[in-house]
Amino acid sequence: MTTLVARDLVKDFGVRDGLRRRSLRAVDRVSFTLEPGRTVALVGESGSGKSTIAKMIARLEKPSGGSIAVTGPDGVEVPDKDYRHRVQMVFQDPFASLNPFHTVEHHLARPLRLHGRARGAEETARLVSELLERVTLPASFASRRPHELSGGQRQRVAIARALAPGAEIVVADEPVSMLDVSIRLGILKLLARLQKEEDLAVLYITHDLATARHFSDEILVLYRGRVVERGPSDRVILDPRHPYTKLLAAASPNPDARDRVFEVGRAAVEAAGATAAYDHHTGRWEEAA
């Protein structure tokens, strides 16, 4: 029973403003618990801080405040040096997350070796084919390079890489948003199956309300670094309480409600307190026109 408890996570980024430096709060007191067999979804638009949270959980960013604690089955907190045995991450863009220079084998064998799961060439090769099999790829793929794989295949390799150290907690940062639509569900189903088989705890980061609802047990809706609503996934999506969640739900494409009256006019946006939009290129929040 390995669980991860994130408590009051805060992340401030230093921003240069003219000659001054000021700090921008990207994540503001976010708490959640990841438990085996359960999926927590972080839902939000760009700039909501969801990816920053993913990076903090994966130890790619240091939290400015709060704590992340992983407790092993024995009830003892996992020491820092073992953290990465337990916690792994699947990245958004499978075209960027595999090194074009290396084979699939390299991507899987390295974590196996690093975490002492395999010794010697023979055992490594055996475990690599096992991993590939678990993500329904033929063992012959081990010798291929990323450019010989499709997006879906690459993402399967990325998932296998996350499983290689024997992780029990997996952060999936928009794992399907860069893939072609017809293969997205396949990847999500694969993740769901692996989760079931291994009793994984999953943190699913997404901007897509529909998959968040179907894929997770609990949803946290983020806006500008804060959790504005949280609850069981069906409840949050079908019966949103916070105006911002309502706005997101109303804005999402929904062919079942083709003739609905859109409620995303100025009034709804203002009611949600969501008049500002984050801009990737300038990295600033701007009042929407």
Partner: peptide, 18 residues
């Protein structure tokens, strides 16, 4: 390929073995 936002959950993703 597009799960419905508000429609039936129907074991769409996390139900049975795919």
């Amino acid at each position: 390929s597009f799960p419905s936002l508000t429609g039936d959950r129907g074991g769409f993703i996390r139900g049975t073995e795919p």
